[in-house]
Simulated scan of single mutants.
Amino acid sequence: MSAQANVDSITPVQQMLSSCSGALITSLFVTPLDVIKIRLQAQTSPLSKGKCFVYCNGLMDHLCVCENGNGKAWYKPQGHFNGTLDAFVKIIRMEGIKSLWSGLPPTLLRMGEKADLAPLFAGASARVGAATLISPLELIRTKLQSERQSYRQLITVIRSAVHTEGWLALWRGLGPTLLRDVPFSAMYWYNYEKGKAWLCRYNKTTEPTFSITFLSGAVSGSIASIVTLPFDVVKTRRQVELGELQARKLTPQTSSSTYKVMKRIVAERGFQGLFAGFLPRLIKVAPACAIMISTYEFAKTFFRKQNQTTRPVLKIHNNT
């Protein structure tokens, strides 16, 4: 009896390289759209004069203005964005084009989160662990993208929050993150596999082409992003509030519930507030999912063909 070694498979290292290459390209491409989305979601009702701090402590310079050094402070109006294009123009004009890639380093460090490629339940369960593990990086990325600030200012804010709330402050927004990411992962992989299979049957091919994986990824990502958008808005609001709760005279306990944050958003901006950043999120997620999955599939195919040409065919003889 003879058997041929499976040369069609790829090694774990090759699979990791395939996944990370797609994540790297995606991160570089969609980070500006992520910045726009978070800026639109972070827009809140302005605080009235004198409602920031009774004294100036240097932690809220991006939000408050001190008056002649006498300890009085008032709200500093932030640039208001009227839409995706308006946000692009204003951010570039006021902060420079580099601001569109704010938070890119923690985004790149989060690339491992995109490496789980199992449909439905396996993908959803893996997402819980991944989202929990990278939650502090997500917090840092969101804070950097929500407003123009240096890493030194961010570290000061984080230290103050940890001192006040404990180390769990680094996992602020984990609840709505899981409510966003777990259903997103389940819906995305389920619809991707179904869409890819349907397109393969429609095109009468056994192997998915680049265009099939690209289209399947874009459509499945779009559907998942729309359904989970309200939780993305809540996640952004919770993480942006790091260091700003005192300015709003709120405590972590009164603002931590996802439901309470949703009620506050609806009270401030109406039901449509739960879908803030709809267009940039859709523009970001659709190509991001398409680029990530098609690059991953393309790289897998490349490595598989390389293995076929470079590995010798092994034959095992078993004489009985």
Rank of each mutant, 00 (worst) to 15 (best):
Gln14Ile: 11
Ile134Leu: 13
Val233Glu: 02
Phe53Gly: 02
Gln43Trp: 01
Pro312His: 14
Ser9Glu: 14
Pro183Gln: 05
Glu241Asn: 12
Thr107Arg: 08
Val13Phe: 13
Thr177Trp: 13
Ser256Gly: 04
Lys249Cys: 09
Leu24Met: 14
Ile25Cys: 09
Ala115Val: 14
Arg201Glu: 11
Ser125Asp: 05
Thr164His: 12
Thr26Val: 12
Asn57Met: 02
Phe88Glu: 07
Arg172Leu: 04
Val162Gly: 04
Phe303Met: 06
Val157His: 03
Cys52Ser: 02
Val65Phe: 02
Thr228Arg: 06
Leu100Phe: 13
Val227Cys: 07
Ser257Gly: 03
Leu174His: 08
Thr258Leu: 08
Gly129Asp: 06
Gly175Gln: 12
Gln41Ile: 03
Gly243Met: 02
Lys300Pro: 01
Gln272Lys: 15
Ala299Gly: 04
Gly69Asp: 04
Pro183Glu: 06
Arg110Val: 14
Thr84Trp: 04
Leu47Ser: 03
Ile10Gln: 01
Gly103His: 03
Val89Asn: 07
Leu242Thr: 11
Pro32His: 11
Ser45Arg: 13
Phe302His: 07
Gln149Val: 06
Val7Gln: 07
Pro106His: 05
Cys20Pro: 00
Glu297Gln: 13
Gln145His: 06
Gln246Val: 11
Gln14Tyr: 09
Leu28Ala: 09
Leu178Trp: 13
Gly166Gln: 06
Ile140Cys: 10
His62Trp: 09
Gln306Arg: 14
Leu108Trp: 08
Ala23Trp: 10
Pro32Ile: 13
Ala124Met: 15
Trp198His: 00
Pro230Phe: 05
Val65Tyr: 06
Met60Gly: 02
Leu178Gly: 10
Val266Lys: 06
Thr236Leu: 00
Glu113Trp: 12
Met60Cys: 08
Lys305His: 11
Gln15Pro: 01
Leu174Ile: 15
Ala290Gly: 07
Thr295Met: 11
Thr84Phe: 04
Arg237Cys: 01
Arg110Trp: 14
